[in-house]
Design a protein around this nucleic acid. Structure first.
Ligand SMILES: [Mn+2]
Ligand SMILES: [Mn+2]
Ligand SMILES: [Mn+2]
Ligand SMILES: [Mn+2]
Lengths: 225, 225
DNA sequence: TTTGAGATTTAGGGCCATCTAACCCTAAAT
DNA sequence: ATTTAGGGTTAGATGGCCCTAAATCTCAAA
């Protein structure tokens, strides 16, 4: 059996891999999980021994197929829980992450199935992130781009808000940045900040790149002048 | 913070204390939690140091008030979860225990409150066991007696079926032994077995004392001849 | 091509929860 | 008052996850 700590490492590696295409470095995992790098090194030893990661010493790791399957399992649990908590237990969008992050390791497959049934086999979580299917086949890369890749005047539709910080999410919700909302990019500042107007709130929000990077969008319809 | 293992020890001691009035022995805890007695001894050291149990070496432990509060917290989580799983996720009476036994250590106080709300602040779980109140005041001893204390001809109403084994619970449900059901004691065998007729199923069930001991009942109305 | 800053691994240690083997205490029976 | 069986505790070890300090490697800049 896999410990919840190991599950967290595999999930972290999976999520870092979604962002970079490169091998995942010890330091990136250490940062993500808030542990020191020697701790990561020794865990990577174990994960390699167990066949969950491919490793090149000093050059980082990638998940094996088995490692990816475990990660997808955990991510599926996480996102189903987030969806269930918002839909059936009246949790707020911004609050669900922490609860799901603990419970994801402790629910049975039976529980997972019942939650998925109660939700009608959903495919995205409340943040717009895709929920891996029950067969745990690796999903395709989403084709949405980060909002930081657009320019002044572009109109986009928010697909996913992948931040995990409750305060940031509350702020975004308060200013109308949620999956499904249309945004017009009104300004791209030279110091890494983007300003957009939400069609919902008819109000503009400014976001530093660190936050904006987590807002994935698709190009929307042109706005009439 | 208390580990989930410590919570399990305190819950086990609490539940053993409900049955005996005497100090709880190392071996009883070891049996309950399926660990060896030296393991229990060393955990009792820690629990004593932390002020959760009163200990007399070689003579067993009792919970302190703090220890009892922790135990009640865990039991409240457990029973609320059992109730929620049966009411809202379509779990069967017999199946909930294992799931609740894991999750009880990992839900937040917020989750607890939301589940209690969704259920309308219930006071008993699906097995008829009392759910400790949110303030965690020690509940009174229930006044129900074990069905083994009755005699042939007595009519009783089932209040609580405190077994934890899924197969035993399924069997009991199949034969109409559930909270709220009326039973007539039809035979008390000399070798520790009791036979009762369920008014629901109009069928009789025979139960060894080991099982019957967990069926708590109140005296019911007399049956007309 | 060399070198040094920065990242990674190794070394060594701590705490937790568990085990087995060995020793010791209690309480009941003589 | 002794004995002894049964059970409790101590001793010592393991595996898991984490840490700091020291050694080692990598890669980009000079
Ligand atoms: Mn999340
Ligand atoms: Mn699963
Ligand atoms: Mn139970
Ligand atoms: Mn609680």
């Amino acid at each position: 059996m896999l410990s919840d700590v190991m599950e967290d490492y595999l999930k972290a590696i999976y999520q870092l891999q979604r962002e970079t295409d490169e091998r995942i470095k010890t330091s990136a995992i250490a940062e993500e999980l808030d542990v020191t790098s020697p701790t990561v090194t020794s865990m990577l030893d174990k994960l390699e021994e167990r066949g969950f990661v491919d490793r090149e010493k000093y050059r980082g790791v990638t998940l094996t197929d088995e490692g990816e399957t475990v990660a997808l399992e955990v991510v599926r649990h996480h996102r189903l829980l987030e969806a269930y908590l918002t839909e059936h237990l009246d949790y707020d969008w911004a609050e669900v992450h922490e609860e799901a992050d603990r419970l994801e390791h402790h629910i049975s497959e039976d529980f997972e199935a019942r939650v998925a049934d109660a939700l009608g086999q959903p495919t995205v979580d409340p943040h717009g992130s895709p929920i891996p299917s029950a067969d745990l086949e690796p999903p395709e890369r989403p084709d949405g781009k980060s909002v930081t890749e657009f320019e002044e005047g572009d109109v986009v539709v928010v697909e996913e808000v992948a931040d995990r910080d409750a305060d940031v999410l509350s702020y975004l919700a308060d200013h109308g940045v949620e999956p499904g909302v249309e945004l017009e990019i009104v300004e791209v500042a030279p110091f890494g900040m983007i300003t957009a107007r939400s069609s919902e709130h008819d109000e503009s929000v400014s976001l530093p790149d660190t936050v904006a990077h987590h807002v994935r969008v698709a190009r929307g319809a042109e706005i009439e002048q």
